[in-house]
Structures are given as structure tokens and as C-alpha cells.
Design a protein around this nucleic acid. Structure first.
Lengths: 163, 163
DNA sequence: TATTGTTATACTCTATAACTATA
DNA sequence: TATAGTTATAGAGTATAACAATA
């Protein structure tokens, strides 16, 4: 490919006249664009519960693993411990979770969801499942399985050296 | 599911003792985790060319669409015009692209890649393809096609009302 | 010494309002 | 009046260093 010399500028063209086949040829780019589009809808769903993605994931993990410690949780969610602190502060302030000292290790906190936390989890999780159905309904069973398998392989490729 | 009352804290368990099946049951979460893992590797590849994801995508689009205008480019990349300005400033400062006034519309700039820009594009694009091969090699043809098709359907689901 | 949680901080990405110059 | 590009700014998300309390 040679450099442009004195070619005319693109006129007042519609977006459809712009080609992006080189970027579309990259799976990573498609992954990002698809997730970005999905994220807009997901954030709107979560906003009804005053939640964003990380606080939602955090609540789900605490409900599923009562007594979990902060560093275990940060590990499981692949977020840095300092960033988790502010998320937990907010959830605790809303009385959705509790932080109880662990008697056998007084450095650590055992995380648990309150009744309100469990109730919010139930409602929010169901709403997210409805959001997911919006696109999963359009996929065949084979596509869902292949998507799931492919995502797992991608993660395994890049996490195996990193963990 | 009822709230925790007086359960013991999780002991010094390994990460494998923590369950995340509820989050893993959400495709959106898997999409995010897989892309995050991929991104770490991709950013490392791009750093060899002093590029990040958006500047790379920007360069690819300008090479493929010489004479493109900034607002067309922002549209195609789905990024806000103000954010594109600083990206283009940096690429222009490095003499990878040029901004030429469009004679027929003196508000607009026609974007083109310089020789150095084309050369950097060629090297960076090949490096990204090598990065992509790291995980694509592990996918079957059926998986690649299903992944591609699934991603397109996800994007279509959430962009059709938004555009 | 090492680990848990914390504070402070900084960098990136993204989004919006408001301006200028042109149309 | 509307559009192209710009400036300034603010909100999220993410990453690291360094500290106090505890192991």
C-alpha cells in the first residue's frame, strides 16, 4: 500500500460509504464493539437498581459465597484490592452487605449480604437475565455453545501465563 | 435464597474454592472477562509501536479510507468527536497522518496517512494478526464462524435501536 | 517477614456542554 | 440555523506505592 499523494477528500458521504473491513477482520475489535453495544443496555438495566457492573458482580459473588474475604473477592473478580474497597464501602453504606471481623484472622473481614442485599440481588439478577435474553434469543443453540467455548478458550489463552 | 445469619467465614481457601457460577452463567460477564484478558496481551503488542487501541484503530481506518473526515471517522469508530481530536493531534505530531483542509468545505479536514503512517500500520497490523492467531489457532472453524456470527447478532441487537 | 485492608494518587477511557469558523 | 472541529471538564474504570494492623 502506497501513501496518498493528492487524492480528493471524502465528500459528504453516508457512514455506509466508509469501509472498516480491516478492523472487522480482527476478532478482538468485534469483541470490543459488541461488548460496548451490549454494555449500554446493561448499564441502563442496572441503573434501575442503582448498580453498575462492578458493584453488581460484587453483590452476586457475596451472595454466592457468604463469608468471603475481600482479597479472595478481588482475586475472583480480577480487580485490584484498593478498587474493591470503595465498591464495598458503597454497598455497606446502602446496607446491602456487612463486613464482619474474622475471629481467627483479625486482619480480614467476612463479607455477607443482608436481607436487603439478597432481595436486590434477586431482582437485579433476573433483570440482567432478561437483558441477556434480548440477544441470546437470536442465537442458535450451536452458536451459544460455540460462543461460550470460544470465550473460554480466549480467556485460557491469555490467563494461563498470567496466573 | 435466604440471608446469611451466623455462618463461618471462608477460611484461607484457594481461589478454586470460591464459586462464580452465577456470574459465569451470564454471557455478558464472560464477554467482559475474555476481552479483558485479551486486552492485556494486545496492549503489550501495540506498545512496541507506541500505540494504544484507539490510536491503532484510528490509523487503520485512515489508511483504509484516505481523505476521511474527522466526524465520519468518529462515527465509524463509535467514539465521540472531542475524544478523537486528541488522538489525531498525537498521530499528527508523530507525522503519521496529515490533516488537509477540504477546499469544498473549509470547516472539514481530510485525513491521510503519511508514508511513515503506512509503514507503521503495516507492521502494527501484522503484529496484531499474530496476537490474534494466539487464540484463533485454538478455535475450530465452526467456533470461529459461530463466534463471528454471534458477535454480529449481539451488536445488531443493541445498535439497531440506537442508530 | 508476609498478608489484609486501606489511603492516596494517577492514568486511561468515555461523555457532555459550549465555543469558533464555516456552511 | 446547522455542521466540523475544538476546548474544557467531569465521571468511571483501572493500576501502583505505601501505610497500619495483624499474622
Amino acid at each position: 500500500m502506497k501513501p496518498a499523494t493528492a487524492l480528493p477528500a471524502q465528500k459528504n458521504t453516508r457512514a455506509s460509504d466508509i469501509s472498516d473491513s480491516q478492523l472487522r477482520g480482527l476478532f478482538g475489535y468485534n469483541l470490543k464493539r459488541s461488548f460496548s453495544a451490549l454494555q449500554v443496555d446493561l448499564l441502563e438495566v442496572l441503573s434501575k437498581f442503582d448498580l453498575r457492573m462492578v458493584p453488581f458482580s460484587t453483590l452476586v459473588m457475596i451472595v454466592e459465597n457468604p463469608g468471603l474475604r475481600q482479597s479472595q473477592l478481588a482475586d475472583a473478580l480480577a480487580i485490584e484490592r484498593p478498587n474493591l474497597v470503595v465498591v464495598l464501602d458503597a454497598l455497606e453504606r446502602r446496607e446491602l452487605i456487612t463486613r464482619d471481623r474474622v475471629p481467627t484472622d483479625r486482619r480480614a473481614y467476612a463479607l455477607r449480604a443482608t436481607l436487603a442485599g439478597h432481595q436486590l440481588f434477586e431482582k437485579a439478577y433476573r433483570a440482567v437475565q432478561t437483558h441477556e435474553a434480548r440477544y441470546l434469543d437470536r442465537l442458535t443453540t450451536a452458536e451459544r455453545e460455540a460462543l461460550s467455548s470460544a470465550l473460554n478458550k480466549i480467556r485460557a489463552t491469555f490467563e494461563e501465563t498470567g496466573e
